[in-house]
């Protein structure tokens, strides 16, 4: 009798553990990691790790930014369009033969990024329009402005901007930096900057306010938190993450493209969900968005290695998102009745 209830208990705790979104998303991540590592023979070589980091970085940065907004009770459907806009601004301000313009471009784009975050924040926080629809509206604004600046992909970039992608490619870079660059790709540095940014913010009052506002906006407001300002700050933090991704993109491609970021928006939301962060806000760790983005990226690699034709890739990634988010829910509903 005692034993039966004991095993039942153990079973229940195990399921309870699986139920925790963090645990299940971590398990899915491990599974995808192992599969990718077995499929790709050169997975653990420096070269392939660097290449993977380069390929995954934009989505990771966007997903982490998205996670901040989602935790604050919002959602950003404009992040891909904002990314495109930033690349267009960067490449419009820069002149190829004038290295100083690179610095101007970074400053101008940073200001644009803050502005973009503020517009989204005003809509979500101050006007309290449903986030889905207001960022949907702003995404068209970003797309329109980006198309004004750059109707077709292109633009100029200073040479040293390649340092955001590959230090080796910059002619005048010091040898020490080049050596470091082969082991620590700039993309990783950008990721670390992003993580540090969130680490610092999460230790401040704003970090806690973001969670408070996301989990219950009414009680947060009644407790004296400026909810609108907090949500706007979340949007600005998101914009900074997108800005980092834009630096990487321009470093990699040396050009701007008004339509390049579009598909990344929904992927970033999917990554956040796969990372176990609740779309209702207030719950989940922003770092797990990184995990979710990695999981999705590994899935894409697996699809590539499994020799599935290109045409089936959307299909398979759609199915995998459904399975990844429905799996934990299924476990929840099959749990033994108490």
């Amino acid at each position: 009798m005692n034993e039966v209830s004991k095993t039942g208990n153990v079973f229940y705790t195990f399921k309870g553990l699986l139920l925790k979104p963090e645990v299940s998303s971590f398990l899915i991540f491990i599974i995808m990691f192992v599969i990718t590592a077995t499929l790709q023979e050169s997975f653990f070589t420096v070269k392939s790790i660097v290449r993977n980091i380069n390929a995954f970085t934009p989505l990771i940065l966007l997903a982490m930014g998205q996670a901040v907004v989602i935790v604050a009770g919002g959602l950003d459907l404009s992040s891909g369009a904002a990314l495109s806009l930033f690349t267009c601004v960067l490449t419009t301000v820069m002149k190829r033969n004038d290295p100083v313009t690179g610095i101007y471009a970074i400053l101008v784009t940073f200001a644009v990024a803050i502005l973009v975050g503020m517009v989204n924040g005003v809509g979500i926080g101050y006007l309290r329009i449903p986030p889905v629809i207001v960022t949907f509206a702003t995404s068209y604004m970003w797309l329109g402005i980006a198309l004004f600046l750059r109707p077709t992909p292109g633009g100029e970039s200073v040479d040293w901007f390649r340092a955001f992608y590959k230090i080796d490619a910059v002619a005048g870079a010091p040898a020490v930096l080049k050596t470091i660059g082969t082991f620590i790709p700039p993309a990783l540095v950008l990721l670390i900057i992003g993580c540090l940014l969130w680490f610092i913010i999460s230790k401040t009052r704003t970090g806690r306010y973001i969670y408070a506002v996301g989990s219950n906006i009414e009680s947060a407001y009644v407790s004296g938190i400026d909810t609108a300002r907090t949500q706007m700050l979340a949007c600005i933090i998101n914009s900074v993450f997108i800005f980092l991704a834009a630096l990487f993109f321009v470093g990699q491609n040396q050009s701007g493209d008004a339509r390049m970021g579009g598909p990344l928006t929904l992927k970033s939301i999917a990554a956040v969900v796969v990372g176990g962060i609740s779309l209702t806000g207030g719950r989940g760790s922003v770092y797990f968005a990184l995990l979710g983005a990695l999981t999705l990226s590994f899935v894409n690699k697996i699809i590539f290695f499994a020799n599935i034709p290109n045409a089936y890739q959307t299909l398979v990634s759609g199915i995998i998102i459904i399975v990844a988010i429905a799996g934990p829910a299924y476990v929840m509903f099959s749990k033994p009745k108490q």
Binding site: L279, A311, L315
Partner: peptide, 30 residues
Amino acid sequence: LTSYLKLPPLVVTLAIADILQGIVNAYVAG
């Protein structure tokens, strides 16, 4: 998926949209 498994409609319908577009792409391919 949305009402019985309580998954967020935004993500579910998006993923379903992906699956549908995927089927169309596969059907159209070649």
